[in-house]
Design a protein around this nucleic acid. Structure first.
Lengths: 206, 206
DNA sequence: TGCAAACTTACATCACGTGTACTTTTATGG
DNA sequence: CCATAAAAGTACACGTGATGTAAGTTTGCA
């Protein structure tokens, strides 16, 4: 059975990439609201209707990469390493996110997308929704990783506080400008503070 | 000059209330997406265009009360009580939110709105956006309340972890059903865990 | 009573998003 | 190599949310 992608699949992937790249270029050129879906479709040489068979909404074309990264991280987040405490597991998850943000050769693109998401309210809202649902999955994973040791509220407190600190740390760092290395450094410090707190409290210490 | 509201103001308030009440009734009756703005306007005996002079969007008519409550809380959050630590101040803010959620005589309406917001994705996204921006204001207020004692990252870590724990605590509690008193109890426990952590870390202890 | 400002309305317009039927392209089997 | 079926893409129509504009109506005030 077809280990080779096949012409059909390859064409789909090419169209999808053309839509994403064209959309991003247009958004950065003339602004998100000022760009219509019809223009994005024309730039990729497809019909407007076809755009919506690839992406459910105009926001999705910006956030689909972030969604995929999140999915990947959450899959590897599922299993607990031997001897790992809840705080350790969360720390490892956040480090995975940092790596996805920083180490890519697409660092420039990621930074541009971040700026776009932060400045466009509807994108910010969708991104927050994405992260909120991801946190629910993290709560489930954390409870499964420590069966009988954490109830739902304790898991929610752990995930919510660490990811909450990370989100606001990134956002505050971005708002006051500065190089992205510094922003990540600030966020890492914020997460460190939240984790230090967690480790001092009974159910998470080890 | 006009201490008495005036006929014009009273009429505006009545129309506004009619729009909110009618919208909420329709949303609960036949669902959020299934209700059009035109129907809401007809129920309040105004034109569709007038609806948008009262509310910027369909979501706004659901979230305007929450927005006002948040604004009120953030105003009173501004000043630090004598001898209060950052953790104390945050604890007080969260308690204010709990009171706004629980003690009202409109408890039923608030619960219904919460259920609506949680089940409709676009409302959930807007609500998260509202809270995210509120957290930024809390970071500013916290820094102003403790000048020279907290930098931006420390303030972000404190606000983000406590509010993050509260949000996820509420959401997890709501998801697994149960009476609203119990949900608030669970959230209070989640916040307590995050606060206990904060209090154990240097910049927030007292 | 009459004027000015605020409010409301009807109308036009645009973009997002979806349903549907039709055409084109790709895969497969004789 | 062609015929057929499945998949993808297209054209078209439509509903809804949201905004601009210019007129009409109500209110406050002199």
């Amino acid at each position: 059975m077809g280990e080779i992608p096949g012409l059909r699949e390859r064409k789909k992937l090419r169209t999808r990439h053309a839509l994403i790249a064209g959309a991003l270029r247009l958004f950065l050129e003339k602004g998100y609201e000022q760009t219509t879906v019809s223009e994005i479709a024309m730039a990729a040489d497809v019909s407007t209707r076809t755009f919506f068979s690839y992406f459910a909404s105009k926001e999705e074309v910006v956030l689909c990469n972030a969604r995929e990264s999140l999915d990947h991280i959450l899959r590897t987040f599922a299993e607990r390493l031997p001897g790992e405490s809840p705080a350790d597991l969360l720390s490892r998850a956040v480090e995975m996110i940092f790596e996805a943000l920083a180490d890519d050769e697409r660092g420039w693109e990621i930074a541009e997308v971040n700026r776009l998401v932060m400045t466009v309210p509807s994108l910010r809202a969708q991104a927050l929704l994405l992260m909120f649902d991801a946190q629910h999955r993290m709560v489930d994973a954390l409870q499964r990783a420590f069966p009988g040791e954490l109830d739902a509220i304790e898991a929610a407190a752990a995930v919510g506080s660490v990811i909450g600190a990370a989100k606001l740390g990134i956002s505050v760092g971005l708002k006051q400008g500065g190089p992205s290395q510094e922003v990540i450094g600030g966020c890492r410090r914020a997460v460190g503070l939240a984790l230090a707190g967690l480790r001092a409290v009974a159910p998470f210490e080890s």
